[in-house]
Amino acid sequence: MRTAAGLVATAATVLALGALTGAYSLETRRWPANATIVMHLELGPASTPLIDGSPDWDTVAESALAAWNPFLNGVSLSGRRDDAAIASGNRINTVSFGDDAFGEPFGSGVLAITQTFYSPRTSTITETDVVFNRARNWNSYRGPQRSAAGGGSLIDLRRVALHEFGHVIGLDHPDDHGQSVVAVMNSRVSSVDTLQADDTDGATAIYGGDAASVPAPATSDTLPSGSRLLAGQSLTSANRRFRLVYERDGNVVLYDDVERTMPWSSSTAGLTTGQVVMQTDGNFVVYDGSNRPRWMSGTPSYANSRLVLQGDGNLVVYAADGQARWDRFSNPAGFIP
């Protein structure tokens, strides 16, 4: 694990290079390497239909959490719906609506807060809690900011959650440090409602590694934990009969080169291309160009799993213990987030 001093030095270097390479801003605090950050989601049902079709607030929050995961290099954000004690300082990370911030009034004009507990000695984060101000008009939608029917702003919870979860992993505001970049992490809201390159570069800078540099196993039958396919890249079965291709229309397609058939696809054609990731939490996920999950294997509880394209044409997520946790023969539909 890096020392706090090392991180400060890293941050300073990044900021110094900001004009050339991007300008994200890092806190000096971070989670331990390979931590699974469980965020207890207690937002509950929405009182009015959500514009983006999400069934409830926790689904919106899960989507925002998942958007960060491909860039955390071993650390993962995980949402858990339960009724854990909503408190600060109890080492339980919660995401909730509140009339105040754990008994302290929000103060003037606050929509949401993220508070982080950490060890000053090691700069290791021990807890973060996100509280959305219940008194505000919330919904979930994409695009430009909207007005509420009764006046005032209709606030998109997803983009605010993306921003707050960026704080959870240790990102600060680039524009508060004199930087001019397009980013969800800017303090000033805009029509930006998805993670931008500067945001993901910042996450990668904190947790090491570089998702873009993880080699895609173009001629392999296996997508290891933490690896991804970009548009045009593929897996090939060991007997070279089957190919799994991430097409440039956003679809992930399995081809049988003997039968000349297309036995399976993720049914995500027509989306902007993003990446297909074998996440370190065990979930195999298709992200669109806005880093929005569009299809997943639904196996986020099996760390260090791998995806294998077998010679029989089956596509299988194998957990670290060798057990198959998802395969296309038995569950071809997967899960649609």
Binding site: T116, F117, S119, S187
Partner: peptide, 30 residues
């Protein structure tokens, strides 16, 4: 113990500021 509230203003001795503040109790009087 460290506790960071994201976005909270920070201060250093010697800072000269114009301050608009409220008296009632809250996480941040500004």
């Amino acid at each position: 113990l460290g506790m960071k509230v994201e976005g909270m203003p920070t201060f250093a001795v010697g800072d000269r500021r114009v301050v608009f503040a409220r008296r009632d109790r809250s996480i941040n009087p500004i």
